[in-house]
Design a protein around this nucleic acid. Structure first.
Lengths: 254, 254
DNA sequence: TCAATGTGTATGTCCGGACAATCGAACTAC
DNA sequence: GTAGTTCGATTGTCCGGACATACACATTGA
């Protein structure tokens, strides 16, 4: 065994502001996360025991535990009884999130643009009604958009939303993403059920995406739910696989 | 507003066994989850306030909160201040999990089979070394498998594992899935970073999967980490999209 | 009629303490 | 030397309480 596995306990300067409206455990977890991201806490290093940490910060142990637990849930820390809490060895990227294509592209400096092709209200088809949990034939919004990056077509986005949920302005849809509009309308996104597959492009799809007929396409169907569990969006999207792939992280729930 | 939104409070019989080694909060969360799954707690119904629930069970409020919180994390319950805790409206399927193709197929009654094509130890290529966090040129296991369902090829699975982590027996690999073997060896899987894309089949890939050259394929690359954050597996898989698609649920972290 | 205000209720946050379970290492006995 | 034991350290679980905060609803006022 050539590896001694030292993993020394690291001490760093933490502090909380009791006059802030931000919860104490959240302040602490943010500082710890920043320290990990920043490299002050290196992978494998021990965090020091909770009791001493609580005493050093003038906090109670439950508060410190709550902060640590949130980072464990994110996959940044590992706790082991009798050992301590240590930073995971791997360079974890972003944890899984309900990704917004627009925001993803913007964050990557891809200068996204959107061309709204359809923006109307239609009666719900059987498939859409089932996905959204509304009556078949009832009014639903239908939006079809072409998403471009650097002026090149990247994805064709077809979405259906329950009627009366949201005012969908074409100009706004071209200026930002659908999720951002929904959030701005007071809808709290909560979870989504996704299905990702692949198939060959039809002639119509190929033309829209400037691909050849039969070219491989990446497909994604998604139903998004708000915090009350109601379906708020059903999307059927196709992507050019040369321009886009899905990247995400999964956590195991033991 | 035609919807009255009644959502009556539901009361059901819960009980905990204090002599059991199973934690009290876990007993409670399991019973609540079972009640939701079973239909005793219908979507939208209120759970009754925590204080009264704790008193009814002879538990403290923190314990009850811990049980409820775990179900909120799973996306089964929603809490709102001043309102209460209610069951989400949607019919949530399984929450996201580190899916095992073998187990998925078996659960779906697809009678999976595996044909091991390669099972050796090789020096790590640059790509594999980077993904697994080992030295380039160091020993790594290399496994290539063809996964069949109903006798039809479904996926071609190429995996690399750090050397010395596990004994990989070909017979065992053909009898079960890789993840199950790793778990049986005492490895606790924790998280995985995935990338899903699509591309056209090469001639060699097409032959292995009985597809045509140029046919669309679904691709997945995955690095899996154990509970200490060490990479324990790197996979590069291709699937026949007519036979398989990825289904999973994402939760939003606010 | 409609808006502003109050009030009750439920969850959110935080505290201090107690004991149990588990891990690792030092120690002991053979 | 090796196997088993003990022991300290650390997290896991649970308790009872206190105050803060946000939401829904009723009341009040213009």
């Amino acid at each position: 065994m050539p590896k001694p596995e030292v993993d020394p306990t690291v001490s760093l300067d933490l502090s909380v502001d009791r006059s802030s409206p931000v919860p104490l455990y959240f302040q602490l977890s943010q500082q710890l996360e920043a320290a990990i991201e920043h490299g002050a806490l290196t992978p494998g290093s021990l965090l020091g025991n909770e009791i001493e940490l609580a005493a050093r910060l003038g906090l109670s142990r439950p508060t410190v535990r709550q902060a640590i637990q949130s980072l464990v849930d994110k996959g940044l820390l590992v706790r082991r009884r009798g050992v301590g809490t240590q930073v995971v060895h791997s360079q974890v990227k972003r944890p899984l999130e309900l990704s917004s294509l627009y925001d993803d592209l913007e964050a990557a400096g891809q200068r996204p643009a959107t061309k709204v092709l359809v923006n109307t209200v239609v009666p719900a088809s059987a498939e859409v009604a089932a996905a959204l949990g509304v009556a078949e034939g009832g009014d639903v919004h239908r939006v079809e958009r072409l998403r471009l990056a650097h002026g090149e077509p990247m994805a064709y986005l077809s979405n259906h939303l329950p009627g009366g949920l949201l005012d969908l302005d074409t100009a706004q849809l071209e200026a930002t993403g659908l999720y951002r509009l929904m959030r701005a309308a007071g809808i709290t996104l909560h979870s989504a059920r996704q299905s990702i597959g692949a198939r060959a492009a039809t002639a119509a799809e190929a033309e829209r995406l400037t691909e050849d007929e039969g070219a491989p396409l990446l497909t994604m169907q998604r139903t998004t739910f708000d915090d009350t569990g109601r379906a708020v969006e059903f999307g059927d999207h196709i992507y050019r696989p040369s321009r886009y792939s899905f990247e995400f992280q999964l956590l195991v729930r033991p």
